[in-house]
Design a protein around this nucleic acid. Structure first.
Lengths: 120, 120
DNA sequence: TCAATAACTAATTAATTACTTAGTAATGGC
DNA sequence: GCCATTACTAAGTAATTAATTAGTTATTGA
C-alpha cells in the first residue's frame, strides 16, 4: 500500500492551502497525475476494459492503471460496472462529468498545440 | 541547483511517451506544478512584483517563486522587465498566451467548483 | 559601517509520486 | 490437477518534486 501522507509537513500544509483557496488546484492535481488524461481519452474512445486501456497505453503498469481508474471513479468522472462472470468482466465508461472534463481538456490541448514553446 | 533528470529511467521514458503523444501532457505538467496557477492569477490581478506575489501567496518560498516565474517566462506565458535601479526593480505581466491560459483555467475552475466530489 | 532592501541562486534534505515485483480470486479448458 | 484468464492489491524501491538554509548583488539610509 502507498505510504500515508505526512500531514505535519509544510508540503502538506501548502497543498491544503491551495486546495482551500481554489478547487482548481485539486482538479489539476488529479488530471496531471501521470496517465490520467490519457486514460480518460482512452475510455472516451470506447476502450472500456481494463485490458484494452492497458494495451492502448502501452507502458502503463497494472498498478498505476488500477490506481488511476479508482481515482477517476472516486471523483465521479468514470463509471465502473462489474459483471459476475468468470474470468471477471469489468466495464468502464465516462460519466456526464467525465465527458464535460474531456471536452475542457481538449480545448486545453488545442491551446498547448498552438504554443510554440510547448514540445520542442 | 536541481538534480538532473535521469533520462534512462522508465519514469522519464513514460513522461516522454506522454508528451510525444499529446502536448496537453506537457501543459498539464507545467500548470499543475505547485503554485503555478496561483502565480498566474496573481499576476493577472495586477501583482506585478516578485515581492507582492510572494506576499499574496503567503506560504510560497523565494526559491519556488523564482523557479515558477522562470518556467512561466520560458513558456512565454509571462513577461519580465528588469529596471536598472537599486534595489533592483523587476516587473512581471501576462503575455497574450498567458491571458488565454488564464481564461481556460478559469473555465476549468468553474467546472471543478461544480463537481460535488471536489473539495469535501 | 552596518543593517536593510529586492530579487534572486546553489546546495541539501524532506516528502511525495511512479514503478517493479510478486501474488490474489474464481472458473474453464486441456 | 494444472495452466490460463481478467482485474486487481500489497509491499518495497527508484525517481522526482518541494522545501529549507544560506548566500549573492549593489545601493541607500541611520
Amino acid at each position: 500500500m502507498a505510504a500515508e501522507r505526512k500531514v505535519s509537513s509544510t508540503n502538506y500544509r501548502n497543498q491544503s492551502f491551495l486546495v482551500n483557496k481554489c478547487s482548481l488546484n485539486e482538479l489539476l492535481d488529479l488530471v496531471s497525475k501521470r496517465w490520467v488524461s490519457e486514460v480518460l481519452f482512452c475510455i472516451e474512445e470506447g476502450n472500456n476494459r481494463f485490458k484494452s486501456i492497458k494495451e492502448e497505453l502501452q507502458f502503463i503498469s497494472d498498478t498505476v492503471l488500477a490506481d488511476r481508474l479508482k481515482l477517476l471513479e472516486k471523483y465521479d468522472l468514470v463509471n465502473k460496472v462489474t459483471f459476475n462472470v468468470m474470468p471477471v468482466r469489468v466495464e468502464y465508461s465516462l460519466t456526464e462529468n467525465g465527458k464535460t472534463l474531456c471536452g475542457l481538456l481538449e480545448t486545453l490541448c488545442n491551446f498547448s498545440d498552438s504554443l510554440p514553446a510547448m514540445n520542442n
